[in-house]
């Protein structure tokens, strides 16, 4: 049995169709990431799985149960982290964890959870005085109190500093390794790339791609060399010089459709040098998740700007 199953799900609000018929499933022991730009329908999908909304058509099942109809038997088995809020503002982390623990039959210990999300130092600070990252980590900890078999985390790393992100990623991995199915949403490619075992890319209420990160990154893109250079360069001349097709995919972004052999890379850079054209960056081989995302949704991911910076874990030549 799949841990979660979404079959032909349609969700409409009045005349607006938020989800236009999507299907996917998630297994125990995996991190399933719903990736998509804002407004793609990620939260609507997750909230339908959590029982907050009823499907307009189609059906969803969590651990084989209907989240609305079987609420009583399902709620003890899932953990939920809302995109924001959800905690009494006057309550500190310790008090909130103790209260939530009373809702479950076999809760996780509050002190253990505090340590896992690194909140021991602010254990008695009211929620409203915690930083954004601390609030997110408390929200994550509260999702774990009942030792969930399925955890839904809506944008868990949004607004969290790098250290906090590392803590959150670690918790997600531990949860998966303990056999839970973790469903998380993000509009940040880096999060998806780092955490996901399986990715569902949503755009405007539809699934536009589905697969493991490596499947997605190798699909569609064969061998190629990509580089940035001044816009409106003479592609034909370069194509003749290197003996391979060259296209300007977007303004100032070029693709050479050839394997990234050292000779080919040398030929491209030599031609640019000869014409005194600056090379912004050069990437060889597989496309990145960002390339896939951009091609499918026509929008850059939220972290795209940062990701244009060097050190992306792939071969690059910058200058």
């Amino acid at each position: 049995m799949a841990a979660i199953e979404v079959r032909d799900l349609v969700v409409s609000y009045g005349d607006t169709t938020a989800i236009g018929g999507i299907s996917f499933s998630g297994q125990a022991g995996e991190v399933l990431t719903l990736l998509g730009p804002n407004g793609a329908g990620k939260t609507t999908t997750v909230e339908t799985l959590e029982g907050y909304r009823r499907p307009t058509a189609g059906q969803v099942r969590v651990l084989g149960l209907d989240p609305v109809g079987d609420r009583r038997s399902l709620m003890p088995k899932i953990g939920v982290m809302l995109q924001r809020g959800g905690i009494y503002p006057s309550m500190g982390p310790y008090e909130a964890l103790r209260l939530f623990a009373a809702y479950y039959d076999h809760p996780e210990d509050a002190d253990v959870l505090l340590a896992r999300v690194h909140l021991q130092d602010v254990a008695r600070t009211p929620w409203r005085r915690l930083s954004g990252g601390e609030q997110q980590r408390l929200s994550l900890a509260l999702a774990l109190v009942g030792r969930p078999k399925v955890a839904f985390l809506d944008e868990p790393t949004a607004g969290v500093d790098p250290e906090g992100r590392m803590a959150i990623r670690q918790v997600v991995r531990e949860l998966r390794d303990a056999g839970a199915c973790v469903v998380l949403t993000t509009h940040e490619l880096e999060e998806a790339e780092r955490l996901a075992d399986d990715i569902v890319i949503l755009d405007r209420g539809h699934v536009v791609a589905r697969g493991t990160p490596s499947q997605l990154m190798s699909s569609g893109g064969g061998d190629e060399i990509r580089f940035g250079a001044p816009p409106a360069m003479d592609c034909k001349a370069l194509a003749v010089a290197v003996g391979a097709a060259v296209i300007e995919e977007r303004s100032g972004e070029y693709v050479v459709e050839a394997a990234a052999t050292p000779a080919m890379v040398a030929a491209v850079t030599a031609w640019l040098a000869e014409h005194d054209l600056p090379l912004a960056d050069l990437r060889a081989g597989r496309q990145t998740l960002e390339d896939v995302f951009l091609r499918l949704t026509g929008q850059p991911g939220a972290a795209a700007a940062e990701r244009r910076a060097p050190n992306r874990g792939r071969r690059e030549v910058g200058r």
Binding site: Y52, R72, M75, I78, G85, G86, I87, Y88, P89, Y103
Partner: peptide
């Protein structure tokens, strides 16, 4: 503050 919403996905009825 969405506290009521959050309680809706706990075993508290």
């Amino acid at each position: 503050y969405l506290v009521l919403k959050r309680l809706g996905s706990t075993p508290l009825r």
